[in-house]
């Protein structure tokens, strides 16, 4: 099974029995990684073109589960690609590119959300590859729970508030544009947005406190 990965992975031998559950489509995605690798052997430009084509859209979609607007999600993903390219770290990737890209995007998106919601303005530790791939299982699960909670909060917003929040989130619309379209006062739209953010803060606060109680 592991041979189909088609790439050097140091700890292949430790793949557990669960690999047996791997399906056809999973194999084809691994093959895509292989294409990326061969593209990189011809030039970094070709390699990155393949990476962007395969991963840019799903990564943006994933980042958008954490942050509020598509604009921010695209910025985060774009910056991860840029750093990977600029630093030259792509030449030393030992895992799959997919693992590195997802881990880095999630790390950034999570930190961005935390900083936004807690009012923290210190620049988050950015691309420390160290942090990114040293995640404990608890961290991975914390990330997953975070985006699920964000989704739940949005789902539970009152209808009008939800509608306004989603217009802002997915369509990158300014408050004034939303107000005009819905025939509302700008202040009302702002109040709805503030309320949505308030709810989001509440959720994150609970996670933050739990995190400190149990991890620190």
């Amino acid at each position: 099974m592991t041979e189909s990965e088609g790439q050097p992975i140091s700890n292949q031998a430790h793949y557990p029995r669960s690999m047996l559950h791997k399906t056809e489509s999973a194999v084809s995605i691994v093959d895509n990684e292989h294409i990326v690798r061969s593209a990189f052997t011809s030039s970094p430009q070709k390699g990155f073109e393949a990476l962007f084509r395969l991963y840019y859209r799903p990564l943006c979609s994933h980042a958008l589960r954490f942050v509020y607007t598509l604009e921010v999600a695209e910025d985060i993903v774009g910056e991860v690609f840029y750093q990977l390219w600029k630093s030259g770290a792509y030449a030393h990737i030992q895992h799959t590119y997919r693992t590195y890209l997802y881990a880095a995007v999630r790390h950034r998106a999570f930190n961005y959300l935390r900083d936004e919601l807690t009012g923290n303005r210190t620049p988050a530790s950015l691309d420390d590859i160290d942090d990114v791939l040293d995640e404990t299982p608890q961290t991975l699960i914390e990330y997953d729970e975070t985006f699920q909670r964000v989704e739940k909060v949005i789902h539970d917003l009152p209808p009008q508030c939800q509608r306004i929040f989603l217009m802002s989130r997915f369509e990158n619309r300014k408050n004034q544009e939303i107000a005009d379209e819905l025939g509302l006062a700008l202040k009302t739209v702002e109040a709805h947005m503030a309320r949505a953010l308030q709810q989001l803060r509440r959720v994150f606060l609970a996670i933050g406190l739990l995190h400190f109680l149990f991890v620190h």
């Binding site: 992975i9 292949q12 557990p16 690999m19 999973a26 799959t96 997919r98 693992t99 997802y102 881990a103």
Partner: peptide
């Protein structure tokens, strides 16, 4: 550790 790749995949 080996399951991380699978997780992200």
């Amino acid at each position: 550790q080996g399951n991380r790749e699978l997780y992200y995949q």
